[in-house]
């Protein structure tokens, strides 16, 4: 995508604030969620503070339908989440050299409060999930 997002047009109210940044990018706190039709169901979390930074995201339920990250209600409340409709849940995708082997990080889901425009990558303590979960599983 390179400079695909360089001229991204967005509204101020589209901005999502990640108050703690994202691990590895703790100083980057302003992002926008972008859907590019060719890439759906993947979406893009694009940094809008001037840094050339973006992450591919996927809804983990699309490939792990029983995904149940152990996020506490206090953690949700810290994001101002009051009802299920406020929540968007994503996993960050690591695109591999062979793209169909791309993986998603299920240990650090990205939780977004779409109403209050806040986000955070929450690290969950769960041995069932890994940081490199294959998105396309081989059919048994």
């Amino acid at each position: 995508m390179g400079d695909f997002f360089a001229n991204l047009v967005y509204k101020k109210e589209d901005i999502l604030t990640f108050e703690a940044g994202i691990p590895g990018f703790e100083q980057n706190k302003s992002f926008v969620l972008v859907q590019v039709p060719d890439y759906l169901p993947f979406e893009w979390l694009v940094c809008v503070d001037g840094t050339h930074l973006r992450f591919a995201l996927i809804n983990p339920l699309l490939f792990t339908p029983d995904y149940e990250p152990s996020i506490t209600k206090e953690q949700l409340r810290e994001l101002g989440i009051e009802k299920p409709e406020d929540v968007l849940l994503y996993a960050i995708v690591t695109i591999r050299e062979n793209p169909v082997e791309s993986t998603a990080n299920l240990v650090g889901p990205v939780v977004i409060n779409r109403t209050k425009r806040l986000g955070k990558q929450i690290i969950i303590d769960d041995e069932r999930y890994g940081t490199q979960e294959p998105i396309l599983r081989q059919q048994p």
Partner: peptide, 9 residues
């Protein structure tokens, strides 16, 4: 690199 994401999409 992003382009490959189209394949998996």
């Amino acid at each position: 690199q992003d382009q490959g994401l189209k394949n998996i999409a």
